[in-house]
């Protein structure tokens, strides 16, 4: 068993910025535990002598010349913004009152 705890899932949810409900935390804990049990088998064959592959087709040195290209207009930039002011994106205060 991989033994994933609810505390762990709550911590992961915090890292992933998702305000899971207690019910979701509880059901996800069970599901994750099962999923992790079955996917942990990758460790059986992942021996130290096997190199990791992060790109399916090996390429390197893909660059762009340092030449200025198109930018978005301010209308395009802000067209999907939930809130904006002063041509900037507006967000709630970053720190809570207790901080």
């Amino acid at each position: 068993m991989s033994e994933i705890s609810e505390e762990q899932v709550a911590h992961l949810a915090n890292l992933a910025r998702i305000a899971l409900t207690p019910e979701e935390i509880s059901s996800l804990t069970t599901e994750l535990d099962q999923i992790v049990d079955s996917i942990a088998k990758v460790q059986e064959v992942a021996t130290p002598d096997v190199p990791a592959t992060s790109h399916p087709v090996p390429l390197s040195n893909v660059f762009r010349p340092d030449v200025v290209g198109n930018t978005l207009t301010i209308e395009q930039t802000l067209q999907n913004a939930p809130e904006h002011a002063d041509n900037r994106f507006k967000v709630s205060a970053i720190l809570g009152e207790e901080q």
Binding site: V42, Q43, A46, T53, S54
Partner: peptide
């Protein structure tokens, strides 16, 4: 996990 999975990919 992730590291092992990338090896399986190989």
């Amino acid at each position: 996990y992730y590291g092992s999975a990338q090896k399986v990919r190989t």
